[in-house]
Computed example of a mutant assay.
Amino acid sequence: MFLQSEKTQVIFCDVHRSLINQSVTISPDSLVSNNALLAELCLYFQLPTTFLTVPVSTGPTGIIDSLQFLQTPNNTFHRLDADPFKDGLLVEHLASTSANTVVISGFAIEVGVMFTALGALQKGYRVMLGGQKVLSCLSRIKN
């Protein structure tokens, strides 16, 4: 099944360097490279992007450098809950598009990615995970 730019939203979830450095399932540098490649594909195929960020230490921090060229204030949502679909602004943002598919990439599969995927499924979106673009900070996921 092909992705159509007008029907797809790519969601980068919690791609902060300080979080990515905690990975035990894939090297942090590989995760950065994989997400950078996905970002380039988004640009090339004109796939719209959304960024979910979380507070790291005292407040929201920036995403990894290789994704910043796609990030704007209008496509960035700072979440405080594991389920970003509890944020009315994100729900409104996605509803304002004609997207019926979300592609999710990011950190960590057992929290941010999982709750984003579950929330999207509950809202009726087709969900695709970015394969090697998701990682875990828990060693039990590695096995």
Score class of each variant (00 low, 15 high):
Gly59Trp: 01
Val15Tyr: 13
Leu43Val: 15
Leu129Thr: 09
Phe51Ser: 01
Ser30Asn: 11
Lys142Gln: 09
Lys142Val: 01
Gln22Pro: 00
Pro73Gly: 00
Leu129Gln: 11
Leu47Trp: 05
Leu52Gln: 13
Leu80Trp: 06
Phe107Glu: 01
Ala95Gln: 08
Leu43Glu: 15
Phe77Leu: 04
Gly119Asp: 02
Asp81Met: 04
Asn75Met: 04
Asn21Asp: 15
Pro48Trp: 04
Ile63Leu: 13
Tyr125Phe: 14
Val134His: 09
Cys137Met: 00
Asn100Leu: 00
Leu121His: 08
Asn21Cys: 13
Leu67Arg: 00
Gln68Glu: 08
Gln71Phe: 00
Gly124Ile: 04
His93Met: 07
Ser139Pro: 10
Asn143His: 11
Ile64Cys: 07
Leu52Glu: 12
Ile109Gln: 14
Asp81Pro: 00
Ile64Glu: 04
His78Trp: 14
Arg79Phe: 01
Val24Asn: 01
Asp81Asn: 10
Ser66Glu: 11
Lys7Cys: 02
Gly59His: 04
Gln68Val: 06
Asn143Phe: 11
Phe69Pro: 00
Ser136Gly: 00
Gln22Tyr: 11
Glu40Asp: 15
Ser5Ala: 10
Asn75Tyr: 06
Thr97Ile: 04
Ser23Gln: 06
Arg126Asn: 13
Ile64Arg: 02
Val102Ala: 12
Arg140Met: 12
Leu38Thr: 14
Leu121Tyr: 08
Ala120Arg: 12
Ser23Val: 03
Gln9His: 09
Gln46Val: 11
Ser105Arg: 02
Asn75His: 04
Gln132His: 14
Gly62His: 10
Gly106Phe: 06
Leu52Ser: 13
Gly59Gln: 03
Ser23His: 05
Gln46His: 15
Phe51Pro: 05
His16Lys: 04
Asn21Ala: 15
Ala95Lys: 10
Ser27Phe: 03
Val56Ala: 07
Met114Arg: 10
Lys7Ala: 14
Thr72Ser: 07
Leu121Cys: 11
Leu129Ile: 13
Ser96Phe: 01
Asn34His: 14
Leu70Asn: 06
Val24Cys: 07
Ala117His: 03
Met128His: 10
Gln46Cys: 13
Ala99Trp: 02
Asp87Val: 07
Thr53Glu: 12
Ala99Gly: 07
Phe51His: 02
Ala36His: 05
Tyr44Leu: 14
Gln68His: 07
Asn74Cys: 06
Gln46Ile: 09
His78Leu: 10
Leu31Trp: 08
Ala108Ile: 08
Asn35Thr: 12
Phe107Thr: 00
Gly88Thr: 09
Phe115Gln: 12
Arg17Thr: 04
Ile11Thr: 03
Arg140Val: 14
Ile141Met: 11
Val24Ala: 02
Thr53Trp: 09
Ala95Arg: 08
Thr97His: 07
Leu41Arg: 09
Asp14Gly: 08
Gly112Ala: 04
Ile141Tyr: 07
Leu129Met: 13
Ile11Phe: 02
Gln46Phe: 10
Leu90Thr: 02
Thr116Ser: 04
Ala82Gly: 13
Cys42Trp: 02
Pro55Trp: 00
Glu110Val: 01
Phe115Ile: 00
Ala117Tyr: 06
Leu37Ile: 10
Leu138Val: 02
Thr61Met: 13
Val91Ala: 09
Pro84Gly: 07
Gln122Val: 10
Lys123Met: 06
Thr116Phe: 01
Gly112Thr: 03
Asp14Ser: 05
Ile11Tyr: 03
Ile26Tyr: 03
Cys13Ser: 14
Ser33Lys: 10
Val102Lys: 12
Leu80Gly: 09
Ile141Lys: 05
Ser30Tyr: 02
Val102Ser: 11
Gly119Ser: 01
